[in-house]
Amino acid sequence: MNQEKKFRPALILIVDDSPLNRRLLKVVLQNSGYQTMEAENGKMARSMASENLPDLILLDVMMPVEDGFDTCKGLKQNPLTKDIPIIFISALNDTENIVKGLELGGVDYIGKPFARTEVLARIRVHLELKFAKEKLVESQVRHFADIREAQESFLVDPEMYPEARFKYIFRPILEAGGDFLDVIRTGENTYVYTVADISGHNLGTAYVTSALKVLFDQNINPYTPVEEGLRMTNAVLNRILQPSQHLTAAFLLVDKGMNKAFLYNAGHLPAVNVKASTKEAKLLEAEGDILGPFEQVEFYPTQEHVEPGDRFFLFTDGLVELFGDSMRTRTQGIEEVMKQAAASADLPLGESLEFIFEHLCPDKNLLQDDVVILGTEV
């Protein structure tokens, strides 16, 4: 939140085709200290919202050309405006329309004719929620800046979560590299396995990786959906990373109770899945934006059915890419991981990881990037 926005009154966009309704709401809001903007139709509202980024939108439903529901859809599809809270104000106050408005992304629905005190009370509640979320991001940025612990002290110990059934290999090329891994428990039988890679190899990169565990622990938890946690993480990284830096990461959520796995990918490599029943390896791929450079990010997770004994492997590009005389492309490296993961399916998980690592990186002196490979068995 920039300083100019921090100290100005909240800006509310009023969208209604009736000049009388707009004027009434404008008077009510301005008398309560809010700044206002007006749009007489949905198309104008979407344009004004993209340009001015109001703190909240009051949206009528019954309008010509484009009704309020279509306007809401357009606002939620635009990365610039998707997080602006929308309160519908409409004479269509039956249950069906109220539910539709909320399902489309509205935070509230007020029926016409409305009471001045009710409108102001609901606006206040939703502005407080919006600003509280922004303050949370700000506090995480400040907290992040205070962390100076060494990177290795943040690496999770497999003995802490024996029921998570995971092992890993971590080989930084510097004393503190740019790769990172973590395992976070988010439910009785649910864990999120994370492998990440910060661009660059310098003290600044080491500083960022040393604090990623705190950031992930704050935002990936039993009470926050993974996708929302990633957006919160991105909001902090967008503030603290250097312009030349970004984070790629893979987040594998395994729910053993539901026999399901979900891969959330932030511009990272795919995961490799080895089925216990067939000993065959396949790729688990998902789309998503890298973290840090963009204010808004999107993720498209992939779901996979799992059975006891199934394995997943997450890794960084230092494992699969080689340069120089022994050049190996990323695609070739990923294919090799699949081959060796399948070949070592009968070995204990830790030995399987060593088997894969030795076959892909036989000469450790040739490593030119950090290497992380994390494996888990359902």
Rank of each mutant, 00 (worst) to 15 (best):
M44T: 13
L374H: 09
P362K: 09
I98F: 10
L237G: 00
E138C: 08
H143P: 02
K279G: 10
L24Y: 11
L253Q: 15
G177S: 05
A49Y: 00
I184R: 01
E66G: 04
A249K: 00
K133E: 15
I123P: 00
V65Q: 12
A341L: 05
I12P: 01
V306G: 03
P85K: 08
A121F: 00
E304L: 12
T224V: 10
L56K: 05
S344I: 05
E228G: 01
I123W: 00
L53H: 08
M258N: 15
V141S: 04
T186C: 14
Y207G: 13
F294N: 14
I123L: 07
L252V: 05
V214T: 15
L215A: 05
R328Q: 15
L374C: 08
F180Q: 01
F114A: 04
V27K: 12
T248N: 09
L319V: 03
L269D: 01
V61K: 04
Q296Y: 02
L25P: 09
E295G: 14
A150D: 15
D255V: 05
Q245I: 06
L92F: 11
D182P: 03
E354Q: 13
E287A: 12
L252F: 12
L360A: 00
N2K: 11
R328V: 13
E138W: 10
E103V: 05
Q340N: 13
V119S: 01
Q35M: 13
L319E: 00
K5Q: 13
Y34N: 12
